[in-house]
Design a protein around this nucleic acid. Structure first.
Lengths: 185, 185
DNA sequence: CCGTTATGGAACATCAATGCTCCACTCGGC
DNA sequence: GCCGAGTGGAGCATTGATGTTCCATAACGG
């Protein structure tokens, strides 16, 4: 909140970004590892985030912000709901490691001020219901299932690029192709 | 391998089973927690598995065995490939915590004698190719993608029961419904 | 160019998980 | 019912992560 000097802001970003990347690969990575990855001394990490939980909270908040921003860019209220979800998928896909982290470390939400219900989440579920009403999304698939499905597909797509070396765009195509067919009525 | 006395075999099972359940929920659970969950002393756990890695190897081997057994029960070579995959999905779904554990702790494979290629995996990929050939599975979806997709759907289904309280059978239905549509040509 | 600001590293205390040992106890199977 | 296999708990050493302090130094910015 309080404006930070340019230097401090930059260092803070470096630490958070490095932590996201590192923790996405190994949620048990030590703070020393994070410091090294960020190109910073362990002492400096502690200066910004006195306790591990402080760092996790910062990460959580950072990723949630990005999710919110991505959700807005997807313009969920424009056009058919099914197409809106595909746009959202593309936006979320760009989140990369942040996505992976949120997917397999849901406890992360607890470290931040997240009450189960973010605006992005509400907007997502609302869009699915709109799809049900207008008939562009299979009515048998509950909102929550569709949300979980989207996250799982995105996670799978990233995993797919890591293990098979498939290029990002190809993985995204597979992901969207699969989603489109899965949610079609 | 060497035949164990009934008592030892039972204790060993209790520890492994408890560990699977516990680690599925929290991969960082301590050996003390595992001992408590298994209803045995921490000393006993060490007697059976001198190091943590020994326990992980045992778990890995145990789960892999169950996967192999489930794969055989699915009779992948009978009938259309798409239907075979649905049967497999139902069998895998029954693995419960073991499934969750393998999904979000892939490193587990390293602790056992797993060379990237289990018979079950080979059989699975082969079945997908059969589906491509006979036209019952969308040819645009590579074998590896379908495999990852199936695991992700199963994981999501379990997650769905945990977070929304949906009954198991309903989650499985959603899972199968989604899979069927996703892999259809 | 100079002073404030930020950093890195060393050193230290703490803590929890682990791995290991010993011994008394009990429970299972003959 | 007896005896040995199997168990549990207390205790102890080790290790790695964490959190904290202090000081010398680097670099940022006016």
């Amino acid at each position: 909140m309080a404006a930070e000097s340019g230097t401090r802001a930059r260092t803070r970003r470096a630490i958070v970004d490095a932590a996201v990347t590192l923790l996405a690969g190994d949620p048990t990575a030590s703070l020393g590892d994070v410091a090294t990855a960020a190109g910073v001394g362990r002492t400096t990490v502690h200066r910004y985030f006195p306790e591990r939980s402080d760092l996790l909270a910062a990460i959580s908040s950072d990723v949630l912000d990005k999710v919110e921003a991505a959700t807005e860019r997807a313009r969920l209220d424009d056009g058919p709901a099914a197409e809106a979800l595909e746009r959202l998928c593309q936006e979320y896909f760009e989140l990369g490691d942040g996505l992976t982290l949120m997917f397999d470390t849901p406890q992360l939400a607890n470290w931040s001020d997240w009450d189960e219900e973010t605006p992005a989440d509400r907007h997502f579920l609302h869009t699915v219901r709109r799809g049900h009403a207008e008939g562009s999304i299979d009515a048998e698939l509950h909102e929550e299932w569709v949300r979980n499905l989207v996250w799982a597909l995105l996670y799978t797509a990233w995993e797919h690029t890591r293990t098979t070396g498939t290029p990002k765009h190809a993985a995204l195509t597979l992901c969207l192709h699969t989603l489109r067919k899965a949610i079609a009525p």
